[in-house]
């Protein structure tokens, strides 16, 4: 890799493994993933429920639920500093400051019995970056995310806000300290469609203004198409395909990606029954040998069932990589 690419590299994850030690055995929620995010890009991480997307994001924040969960292996490099080697205190300085997060359900991600002002203030209390009074800063946060009459709303409680407004507040809190990386864990899942698109536009604008990189975790391919520049597909704790958005929709390489794209209904196209991927994702408790998708894949070869495929580069320039024996 050249010096230049290294320079705008923000986050690099190498061989990250996060396992959960339960009574029934070890659940390999994240089982060896590598990816990197450049400064100021929006990357989508897609996959179905239980594929390890959220655990990946929690691992980056070092908030994996203890004591069951543990990061067993790998490196998380933020600007070439390994987050896994930081002390709890150093990590606290990074959270909310350099890395921030937006959670799925806005109605439960705010404390219902504390005023919004107090909760936004929390972000500033620990990271004294800007000047001005706390109140002004909180009003500015709400202004940034286009909450109407912020001077009045700041005194309200979260239950007096609608879902979309709550999510705006949460986003505002997320970007208040202009973080370098914003992890959005299904930020639009709990919202209705019209609000979804408003929130996505807001996030895109915010990204352009602050220059933060966004890791957009979602299972909604439409969201990805709308704002992301690159996509990563996660399946059973591993990343199976990484591609630029346009390549991904035009020529998906992994059979799972193909299935995902085929299962999205297209307006005005009569296809009868919607395509679905047969079967269930494998149990992460005892994952099968070989490719985890092999049992559901109609193009599976013999080797797919015995050996996990290596990562194959399809296009070096576009950074299109896939883990599949079909392309080996």
């Amino acid at each position: 890799m050249t010096e230049n690419i290294n320079k705008d590299l923000l986050l690099k994850i190498q061989g990250l493994k996060t396992h959960f030690f339960t009574k029934r055995g070890v659940v390999k929620a994240v089982d060896g993933i590598d990816f990197s995010i450049r400064k100021g890009e929006i990357v989508g991480l897609v996959g179905e429920s239980g594929s390890g997307k959220s655990i990946t994001s929690l691992s980056i924040m070092r908030l994996v639920p203890k004591p069951a969960g543990e990061i067993v292996e790998g490196k998380i490099l933020l600007d070439n500093e390994n987050l896994l080697e930081k002390s709890a205190e150093e990590m606290r300085q990074i959270r909310g400051n350099r890395i921030s997060m937006i959670l799925q359900d806005p109605m439960v991600s705010l404390n219902q019995i504390l005023r919004v002002e107090y909760q936004i203030g929390e972000v500033f209390r620990f990271h004294k970056k800007t000047n001005g009074s706390l109140r002004e800063k909180c009003i500015n946060v709400l202004k940034n995310v286009k909450v109407p009459s912020p001077e009045l709303r700041i005194r309200d409680y979260p239950f007096q806000f609608s879902g979309g407004m709550c999510q705006r507040v949460v986003i505002g809190m997320g970007i208040a300290n202009s973080p370098e990386l914003l992890i959005a864990d299904e930020p639009t899942t709990a919202l209705d469609v019209t609000i979804q698109s408003q929130i996505l536009q807001l996030m895109k604008r915010v990204q352009q203004e602050t220059g933060a990189a966004i890791l957009m975790i979602t299972h909604d391919l439409a969201t990805v198409a709308q704002i992301c520049s690159r996509v990563m597909v996660m399946y059973a704790g591993r990343i199976v395909e990484k591609a630029p958005v346009h390549t991904f929709y035009k020529t998906p390489a992994h059979p799972y990606s193909t299935g995902l794209i085929k299962s999205v209904p297209v307006l005005g196209k009569k296809i009868g029954r919607l395509f679905s991927i047969e079967g269930q994702p494998p149990s992460l408790l005892n994952p099968p040998a070989g490719c985890c998708f092999a049992s559901r894949c109609n193009m599976a070869k013999e080797i797919c069932h015995s050996e996990y495929p290596p990562e194959i580069t399809l296009d070096e320039n576009a950074n299109h990589r896939v883990s599949c024996w079909l392309h080996a």
Binding site: R95, S109, L110, N111, Q112, Q119, E122
Partner: peptide, 12 residues
């Protein structure tokens, strides 16, 4: 609750 997680994220 998620708000506890968010408070963590805020650096509390």
């Amino acid at each position: 609750n998620d708000f506890i997680r968010l408070a963590r994220v805020a650096g509390c």
